[in-house]
Design a protein around this nucleic acid. Structure first.
Lengths: 330, 330
DNA sequence: TTAAGTTGCAAAACCGGTTTTGCAACAATT
DNA sequence: AATTGTTGCAAAACCGGTTTTGCAACTTAA
């Protein structure tokens, strides 16, 4: 049922129907009587306007694109949930996609989203998207980057204080009396990972001990082969504490170590909290990013841009919290 | 840049441009020379068609709606990921939304998706959506229901064998020598939960022992207050094994019990696997739904419907696997 | 009584595409 | 030379809406 058919059936013009449906009867000077007749019929048949046509005519799609690396992940999943929840009151729906860390997929996704006329984009970028992001900015499409920054690009950004939090974590281990702290991270130039690494290196150097960094492959499926991990520990038998740059690295590594080493003797801190950190023995100390606060800030930022596109770029850093559990007690 | 502007700039008609862009130059009998001139210009300016207008004209949106309870969940998140991954090769994008288990939100979401002309809907329904689902079926919009069935409704459905798997789990505990098995479940009439309960009751009765069922509130945030759980165990001191109807119930309950009971003496099986089940002590035996297989089947089913809308409804049951870990050893 | 203002709606233009039809201009046939 | 057939593209109709403009018919004021 289209607006044309309604108009035909009621023997009025479709402009009249449109005005009435959108509550602009007054403005279009439609008589109350006719307005009621139209509304009654519309309700009777349960008319639902075609949002595509509407968007085409108005230029507003009421849709936001959300692009993350992996919606099944324990960081992005909840973030996506909170973003959606906070966006709903504003009348926006979410188009989402996972990039699997592949810039080609990411760019393809971005393209189709733009073609579908999303009004704004929330993006956790992969490396290799710089050009596309430039393009979005040039087009003045509202954009919020989160989690990982794009180096050398001025955009709206919401993220946590990776560098500072990392320092805090390592310092915490030192304070607890651990002296040879190794960092386990992924082999990736992602800025947030680099920041975490930088924080580690700085504290360790200040302390006068030598850094020990284990870089695992980006694709975590490959970690199953435990030899790299074992070698690392054999080469550095002095290690007495581990700092993980992500929660899943911690989980994966512990799975490997659990079967072979007495992990309970290591001091452990991980970046990002995880459901199981409260449950395993020992419970795991971590740096917790406040997911809900981050999501809220992302939404606020995109809404601000949607309201006045010329708004200045804002970078919001939301501090993470060190959650101290047993794994960092000696 | 619209197709009109391209046409104007090249001094040709927009129909010609459209035909060329869509590779129908032949069919429209456009000369090779002109076709090339158009293509060159299109590439030069990096023209991107407006997908809204395209969809309006063609009636195809190349979009599928995915509605789940909570995209941040360890079941729905990965399922969503795999659905998206399997749908991409067919050229479909995914519109997703979380219902938070609220039928009003669910129905609102469904409405806007239909207004946005999604070509198909993948839905894990909440209770109270029966009417809407009927409406979708009547409209012949391709639909796949998953995870939880809608009672008394013939639709495409993909899910696991809740009843059988549940029996297998309980039988396993009996086989291992546990004699008083309690079931912890949520207080919800969701069919899949009822099926799991039915399986439990049947096996326990056959065995001749008396069923002990702890129903926790649906909104799991409320479980933090541990008194209900404690009372239950005090009332039934004979319990020597626990069967959880979901993984998160198991996690939540263990958190409570860990601080108060020596859980390692209980036999434990949970429905749905969880990342941490391999890591905690003891590792947790569970019933694992094959997420990827389920997602693939969902996609196959929706694609089948998209190809010929008149296809018969198909119910696919994908068996779950019992993953035996230490928590069920005596 | 006539000019000016209102009222109430229809008509038309537009959003950006797709697809069918129409029609010149040229070529081929008889 | 007249008829018929192609070729190559333009024009128009359509998808389903929104919004501006136009215009009768009726009021009001002078």
């Amino acid at each position: 049922m289209s607006i044309n058919e309604i108009a035909k059936h009621l023997k009025v013009s479709k402009s009249t129907v449109s005005l009435v449906i959108n509550g602009k009867a007054e403005q279009g000077r439609i008589s109350k009587a006719l307005a009621k007749r139209i509304m009654d019929y519309v309700e009777e048949i349960g008319y639902k306007p075609n949002a595509l046509a509407k968007s085409l005519a108005t230029g507003k799609s009421r849709t936001i694109g959300l692009i993350v690396e992996n919606i099944g992940d324990s960081f992005f999943g909840p973030i996506a949930l909170y973003i959606e929840e906070n966006l709903r009151p504003y009348g926006y729906q979410v188009f989402y996609s996972s990039t699997f860390g592949e810039p080609e997929i990411a760019n393809e996704i971005l393209n189709t989203m733009l073609e579908k006329k999303v009004e704004g984009i929330i993006l956790s970028p992969t490396l290799g998207q710089e050009e596309q992001i430039h393009y979005i900015i040039k087009k003045k499409t509202p954009l919020v980057i989160f989690d990982r920054r794009v180096v050398g690009l001025k955009t709206n950004y919401v993220g946590t204080d990776n560098y500072t939090a990392s320092k805090k974590a390592v310092q915490h281990l030192l304070d607890k009396g651990y002296s040879s702290i190794a960092m386990v991270t992924i082999d990736s130039p992602q800025p947030q990972m680099q920041d975490r690494l930088r924080g580690y290196l700085e504290v360790v150097e200040q302390h006068g001990s030598s850094p020990r960094v284990l870089k695992l492959p980006f694709r975590t499926e490959k970690i199953k082969d435990s030899s790299t991990v074992q070698e690392f520990f054999q080469q550095h038998p002095d290690i007495d504490a581990l700092y993980f740059s992500t929660n899943y690295l911690c989980v994966k590594t512990l799975k490997i170590l659990n079967t072979q080493f007495p992990t309970s003797t290591f001091g452990i801190v991980a970046f990002d909290d995880h459901e199981l950190f409260e449950l395993i023995n020992p419970t795991i100390t971590c740096i917790r990013q406040p997911l809900e606060a981050i999501a809220k800030e992302i939404v606020q930022t995109i809404i601000r841009q949607l309201k006045h596109a010329e708004a200045d770029f804002v970078e919001t850093i939301i501090p993470s919290e060190l959650i101290i559990r047993r794994s960092s007690e000696k």
